[in-house]
Structures are given as structure tokens and as C-alpha cells.
């Protein structure tokens, strides 16, 4: 249970960062922290005590395997997270070139 709680705390740390940080890059880092806390949670769900790697071994067909589905989900989600982060970073580089700053308080063309 403690592991899940730590996982949730990590999520909240990320959320705190997204809400309070003013630097664009730090916001993206916080978003990544949140992302990885969710991945950690998913990987924990599939954990089976004393389970082995889910590869079929013909010699030992009755082994206890860990649940492979959350692992597949995490892998897919990591790929998606990579795409999102790359996209965000390229947008930040563009923003820096236009505004010459990374401070979110000075980037406020759109209001209302």
C-alpha cells in the first residue's frame, strides 16, 4: 500500500510543479514527473508476488507470471509521452525565439 501512496505523492508533486512553476521548461518537467508516476502506478498494478517474466517457457508451463498487459500499456504510453514531450520542447524553442523569454508571466498575448 505504501508504494501506491508514494506513487500518488509523486503525482501530486508533478501537479504542484505544473501549477506553480513559471518557467516553461519546468512546467514540461513537472508534466513528465506526473506522467511517470502514472506509468509507475500502471506497472505496479500488474505486479504479482513471486511472478516471473511473462515469456512462455516450455519446460515450466505452470509458472506464475506477472501480468504483461499493464507492461504493454506502459510501453505504449511511454512512446506517446515521448511524442508529447518532443512536441512541447520544440514549441518551447519556437516560443523562446519569438518572445526571447521563458517566463510564463510575460507570454500573455491571448487574454479574454
Amino acid at each position: 500500500m505504501v508504494v501506491y501512496l508514494l506513487c500518488f505523492i509523486l503525482f501530486l508533486v508533478g501537479l504542484y510543479g505544473v501549477v506553480t512553476r513559471r518557467n516553461l521548461v519546468k512546467i514540461v518537467i513537472s508534466l513528465s514527473i506526473m506522467e511517470f508516476s502514472v506509468f509507475l502506478f500502471l506497472a505496479l498494478i500488474g505486479y504479482v508476488h513471486d511472478g516471473v517474466v511473462p515469456i512462455v517457457d516450455p519446460a515450466n508451463p505452470d509458472a506464475r507470471y506477472v501480468d504483461p498487459l499493464p507492461q504493454a500499456m506502459v510501453l505504449t504510453a511511454i512512446v506517446i509521452g515521448l511524442a508529447t514531450t518532443a512536441m512541447l520542447m520544440s514549441v518551447i524553442i519556437r516560443i523562446y525565439r519569438k518572445y526571447k523569454t521563458l517566463d510564463i508571466r510575460e507570454i500573455k498575448n491571448l487574454r479574454g
Binding site: 520542447m89 520544440s90 519556437r94
Partner: peptide, 9 residues
């Protein structure tokens, strides 16, 4: 491609 794009930037 991502690496090269960032480098080109």
C-alpha cells in the same frame, strides 16, 4: 529526426 530537428533549430 527529433534530434536533428532540434539541432537545426
Amino acid at each position: 529526426t527529433i534530434f536533428l530537428a532540434l539541432l537545426i533549430f
